[in-house]
Simulated assay, not measured.
Amino acid sequence: MHLLAAGRKEDVSCTLLVGGQSHPWKVQSSRGNIGQWDSRLVDGSVSEIGRLNGVEVETFSLTPGFIKNDRIAWVGTHAHTPNGDVPYKFCYLFRYDFPLPDGVRSITLPKQEEVVVFAVTCSREENGGTRALSPLFDRFPDNQVAIVSAENALCFVDKLLISLNAAPSQKEVRYTLDGSEPGATSALYQAPFFVDRTTLVKACAFDPWNNAGPVASKRFFQSTLRPAAAAYDGDAGVCCSYYEGVWKWLPNFSQLSPMRTAVLADFSLPDQVREDHFAVLFTAMINIPADGFYTFYTRSDDGSALWIGDVKVVDNDGSHGADEKAGLIGLAAGWHPITVHYFEDHGEQSLQVRYAGPGVPKQIVPAERLRQRP
């Protein structure tokens, strides 16, 4: 018996009954970037470019394209929504095979709404499944150098330990710290080393026949931590100002008068907003638990931006569908002013504000970390 199925949003564990016999079944999500070579993930999200203290920087980290365990039966290159197609938001259907003993007269499909079964068919013998022509993941050559920092940090305050890793089949690794291309006369890598300023590290491996591999490069940023405000004990909540108008980009809120204001628990959109053509200004204080570098994210439909003090950390402006952008900033432990701008042009509307940092996994900024700004 063969089923064509997928999970609506996430992988789903369920049970299929075949003639009363239970078969555990994990249905793969219909979404994701399966095997695309450019599936570059930052903290689990596709990222193109970020910001460090208001300056655009290259992608923070690299994760190769990945695979699903189950057979892919169908691939869609666009997601379909009530507002039209979203290009390059890939979606998938998977093929699942289960034994069908003689005499079975019934099957019971899972009742979870998150599992969608598109088709069921039977055959007298197992159909030959399709196979990928080549593995659906990145293969890095043996002569590729991996530039690795302590705790995979991109930024540091005083100094940062750097390692250069290559396959054992390579004879040696040469590197530079001044932006020049590494060659046979460049510094020979012998042990991890420290950098104590913003540095572009470039490295390449040489095989036993002195053939140079591709040049790897990564920039590491030295930055200070933004000092926290004085001790603060304000009321819980986020101050929210609501505006109406037609914009293709975030408006200049300083030149507008709000139609109404409110205090919300977090950066969620207020309940009483019209369907299209409005903007919201959020202001608050955020409590940072420990010194370090924090990544802030806004995922919005349409545009948004996020400031810490007077530094724009995230720029996600413009009229667009749901999209996430990120930025990095060094913060001392304590209270910091945070501002979020948002506008809705037309179509769907959404806003999520997340952060991650030392000891803080990527998550929605929790209400208990927010206070009204004085």
Rank of each mutant, 00 (worst) to 15 (best):
V273Y: 01
A205D: 08
A231G: 05
S304H: 11
V360I: 15
A332M: 12
F293H: 14
R71C: 10
A153N: 09
A187Q: 09
Q222A: 11
A229V: 00
N252M: 10
F206T: 03
G129Y: 02
G7V: 06
S241K: 15
P24E: 11
L250C: 13
I34T: 11
K159S: 15
V365K: 00
P251I: 14
N83E: 14
Y294N: 04
F282R: 04
S300R: 01
R105V: 13
L136R: 14
K312N: 10
R371P: 02
A332Y: 03
R139C: 10
Q112G: 03
V75S: 03
S123W: 00
D317C: 13
E181T: 15
A119E: 14
L250M: 09
T283C: 06
V246P: 00
V116C: 01
E344R: 06
L3D: 09
A367L: 08
V148K: 12
L250N: 07
W249N: 07
S149D: 04
F137W: 13
N210E: 15
T81S: 14
F94M: 04
I364S: 07
V314N: 03
F90L: 14
D196F: 12
I72D: 03
T176W: 01
C122H: 00
A153V: 01
Q272C: 06
G20A: 08
T81P: 05
V120H: 02
L269M: 08
K171V: 02
R260W: 04
P258Q: 08
I286Y: 01
D142I: 10
S123N: 06
T63K: 11
C122D: 03
L3Y: 07
L281Q: 11
G318C: 12
S22H: 06
S149C: 08
V18F: 08
N210V: 01
G44E: 07
I162S: 04
T130G: 07
P374I: 10
A216N: 01
T121I: 00
C240D: 03
F296D: 04
V273N: 01
A284D: 04
L133C: 08
P270K: 03
K218S: 10
